[in-house]
Simulated assay, not measured.
Amino acid sequence: MLHPEETEAQFEQRWWELMNDLRQRFGKKPDLNALLLLIGVQELGQGGGPFTKEQKQDLMHIATCRLFSISGYYELERVDEDGWPHFRLVKPVPFSTLKEQERMLKWHMLEYFQEMDRLNG
């Protein structure tokens, strides 16, 4: 996924800039799983843990749903009594290859962090 006016090189540049920014913030370059966990914790809004292995998996699921809500694949259904968000699938996410899945995830992460930067301006 690209913005209509964005080239592959521009997409890669945006990704490199995000990774560089996160490396500066956290002292190391995060992988995709670490980014999903970070986004999940942010979306939960209850601080940084500690979390059990199961909770970390749930946080990564929250992140994935939140990211794909940007493109209308998921929507927030409710927040439970413990403050955990629950999403529902609106339309199937079109995946074919692992490379395309990773690319789509990266694009949504770029959009998410850009949105967060605008909100926290």
Rank of each mutant, 00 (worst) to 15 (best):
L37N: 02
L59E: 11
T97N: 13
W84E: 04
V93P: 11
S71F: 13
A63F: 07
Q24L: 14
F113I: 05
Q24T: 08
L2W: 11
L105S: 11
P85D: 06
E75P: 05
E54D: 07
V41L: 11
A9L: 11
G49Q: 06
E17M: 10
V79K: 13
Q101D: 01
M109R: 02
Q114G: 15
F68Q: 04
L38A: 05
L38T: 09
G121I: 09
F95E: 05
E77L: 12
E43M: 10
Q55L: 08
Y74T: 03
M109I: 15
D58Q: 14
Q42D: 15
R88P: 03
E54V: 08
S96Y: 08
T52W: 00
D80V: 10
K106H: 13
Y73K: 08
A9F: 07
F87V: 05
L105H: 07
G121S: 12
L36W: 01
E43K: 01
E43H: 04
G121P: 08
M104S: 12
L36S: 01
E54Q: 08
R118K: 12
S71R: 12
Y112K: 02
L105V: 10
K106E: 04
I70Y: 14
P85C: 09
G72A: 10
Y74R: 02
A63P: 06
Q55Y: 07
L67C: 11
M60F: 00
H61R: 00
K28L: 07
A63Y: 06
A63W: 06
E17T: 06
D82H: 15
D58C: 01
I70F: 13
N120I: 08
F87A: 03
E115M: 13
R14V: 00
L38D: 11
E8V: 09
K29M: 05
D117E: 15
P92A: 06
M109S: 01
G49R: 05
W16F: 06
E6W: 10
R23F: 08
R103Q: 12
R78W: 04
R118W: 03
R78N: 11
I39Y: 10
E81W: 07
H108D: 10
E115R: 15
Y112P: 02
L105D: 09
R14D: 07
E12G: 00
N20M: 05
G47K: 13
Q101H: 14
